[in-house]
Design a protein around this nucleic acid. Structure first.
Lengths: 343, 343
DNA sequence: GTGGGTTTTGCACAGGTATGCAAAAGCGAG
DNA sequence: CTCGCTTTTGCATACCTGTGCAAAACCCAC
């Protein structure tokens, strides 16, 4: 409390050298002699000196802070990604500053100013439909933006998504091969590209396979929304298979079917999700789902950021990570279907 | 990219006033005339000016950044708390900088330096057994530290926990009242106060009620550890009820019992958890558990931080939030037991 | 208009660091 | 030892803002 902050000047005084010398010792790649290094470090350790990142950032213009804009952490996919992202960035000397938006359908407008105020070096947005111009404004300010698990038509923006189209097609093939004839879809929020792409590709793929999508309801990426959608679906369209826009909603659907309506899954209705969060692999759900490899997606995100921050590439990248269908017990398995997918 | 950063000097020049005037307009509570305010704001808006938080923090000595040290986000309790904490702090003009430690049993030593480098105004540690002297070092540097959901004997440190002793006693009463006679416990990690307290209180409470704890295994707060513990327990001690140190482990235990060993829960074995994460309320698990009110715990955390940051209180606080038993379907319910607990 | 008191404004400096530039030191060869 | 070259060091300045202090402006009553 009474401890005054120890600065590079204090160290310099104790070591009997100039402040710039101290600065250079703590700046990788600066020109310092062996002897000087030794001397300064000894003094620094004695005083417990560490450079002030904020003061440093003021002059270098780099804060080593990455902003993360996120809407909700209820869907386990996001905490998992957050954990990986934070760890990966930490290894590179960056840290994550968290900005929560209200709800999953916000455009992030409330936090964008906050973000810029903190002079973040980069920006990752997850689970939020950030409007084009907001993100573009950041890019204009020289801040690289990566949309994580969400696309936007704007060609200026970086994106990392899984291949939603291929994924949805894989699910369609799987369900058709399994002999289902009344296939429905509970989609995510249509304001998000992820939700739209999966829905559109699923519908199109079914038609390629000679089927028509029986019905589509929107679950708004929320548990309650999905439960409602499932109830409507079973009351009216009566499908024998449901592809749900993500795992988080799929769990709600399975709960409604099994525990509220007494329907056997997969005996009477097959359920397939999207994401492959940890819970999907637990036997209580044992959910067949399309894995979005969050590890690879995070790697790609970090790659893009580093390219930009270290001044390598500058062209916007749209990376699309391939997923694989995880065949488990919530959907009928076609004869002869092998894990990893048939042709 | 080529856009130079717009500073208070630019605004001052455009408005034809001094830089200090601009500063004052953006400093709440400073002395500015109506006319000046109007004039500066117009210029600032025209240029898109916003004060640089980092430069500001350099001079005020407050960064408006709160460090959060966290070990893993797999246990849903923590993402939930993170979300609440971030939202609450944001409302007060603070933001969370995330520091991940390796695994749940780290002492946080790797990140402590990073933390201090960023000049955080305060520190919250969750799911990590931060050693006393590290936290004490932060306090010595004038940074308030709150241990979230973890206690430490050091009287200098702030803590927010649920009342583990009362909670464990409630569970003991519930299980005994339910007619169980072979009661076992799968504890968390004994390096954590949370784990120790729950285990000790549970054991003691059983003895007060005239029973002996049948067996205790450690689950190390991990899914795999808990599963192993459950297998050992059922192989050897054969309990008719298991109190598990947190929900995250309890789910693993239920999965092993039901799907691996074909044991009926709660017919043959009752399972009780601790935390009441969202998943506990989903019908697939329908877990009876002691609710840790994360909302109230976060409120208390923010309270303590604000007291210190706004220079009110300075004495360390140890807040203990009361929990309530959520009676659901994973454990036999004693006749006449009412939700909210019997006397 | 004058005087006293209250606001408002500008000036100048501080906060902790990185870096261009020039001076100093080191080094190796002759 | 001297010279030329490379490496190392110190000086001074810049980064962007908040704030104490004194000067200026304002307000109101006489």
């Amino acid at each position: 409390m009474t401890e005054r902050k120890v600065t590079s000047l204090d160290v310099a005084a104790l070591a009997g050298v100039s402040q710039s010398a101290v600065s250079r010792v703590f700046t990788p790649g600066a020109s310092v002699s062996k002897k000087m290094e030794e001397r300064v470090r000894r003094a620094a350790d004695a005083l417990g000196y560490r450079p002030n990142v904020l003061a440093r950032s003021l002059i270098t213009g780099r804060s080593r802070i990455i902003g993360l804009v996120v809407g909700y952490l209820e869907n386990q996919f996001y905490p998992d990604a957050l954990e990986r992202l934070s760890t990966a960035l930490q290894a590179k000397g960056y840290h994550i500053l968290v900005f929560m938006t209200e709800g999953s359908q916000s455009d992030g407008g409330e936090v964008i100013q906050d973000l810029l105020d903190y002079q973040v070096d980069g920006l990752v947005t997850a689970s939020v439909g950030m409007t084009d111009d907001l993100a573009a404004r950041c890019e204009a300010a020289g801040i690289p933006v990566v949309l994580f698990n969400r696309g936007q038509d704007d060609p200026r923006l970086n994106e990392v998504t899984s291949d939603n189209t291929a994924g949805a097609r894989e699910v369609a093939k799987f369900l058709v091969a399994g002999g289902h004839r009344r296939i429905a879809h509970i989609s995510g929020w249509h304001g998000s590209s992820t939700g739209r792409e999966r829905a559109a590709a699923f519908r199109a793929s079914l038609e390629e396979l000679g089927q028509r999508l029986l019905a589509e309801e929107t679950g708004a990426f929320s548990r309650e929304g999905a439960a409602e959608a499932a109830r409507r679906l079973m009351r009216e369209a009566k499908p024998d298979a449901i592809f749900v826009g993500n795992d988080h909603m799929a769990f709600a659907v399975m709960d409604v079917l099994r525990f509220e309506m007494g329907i056997d899954v997969p005996g009477e209705v097959s359920v397939v999700g999207y994401d492959d969060v940890a819970l999907a692999g637990w036997p209580a759900y044992d959910l067949t789902t399309l894995r979005q490899p969050s590890g690879a997606m995070v790697e790609a995100t970090v790659d893009i950021l580093m390219d930009r921050l270290e001044g390598r590439a500058t062209a916007p990248q749209k990376r699309r990570i391939a997923g694989t269908l995880m065949v488990r017990g919530s959907a009928r398995v076609p004869d002869g279907w092998e894990q990893g997918g048939a042709r």
